[in-house]
Amino acid sequence: MARIDVTVDGVRYTDEVEPRTLLVHYLRERLGKVGTPIGCDTSSCGACTVHLDGISVKSCTVLAVQADGGQITTIEGLAPNGELHRMQQAFHDNHALQCGYCTPGMIMAAVDLLRTNPDPTNQEIRDGLEGNLCRCTGYQNIVRAVRAAAATPTGVTG
């Protein structure tokens, strides 16, 4: 077992974990952060995307021990004050989700995309979200949502 010390959505946790434990399993099973879902076992789908020290990672591709000392934000911590993050609002406004299973990962990836490219073109959005799969929307409204979010002034959380 290994000891880790992480801050997740603003709360500090210290835990003993098996070295093989994936970050996503730690989040879901130990911390109850079930807002972050698991969609595959090959790091293909991106449903489990979270931010580790401000950068998007697929939490199935990170060991919990690798996150030791890190700051993690999940979809549940994106709107801490109850007001939606501009990306969450844009997904809602633009019907960028249907079943919603890919949505947490898609939103976290999209937030990071705007961090590195605040005003992306449609093609840059499509390329930037290549690691996140959606089976419902055909992506068009996701692209629309990300553009809308980019055009929205950054709030305290965004």
Binding site: L97, G100, T103
Partner: peptide, 21 residues
């Protein structure tokens, strides 16, 4: 109309079967 369903889905307050403990 914007969807009623979205509120929980965009915030991670979801009720997937695998979330049940």
């Amino acid at each position: 109309r914007r969807r009623k369903e979205d509120a929980r889905l965009v915030t991670g307050r979801t009720r997937w079967t695998d979330n049940i403990t």
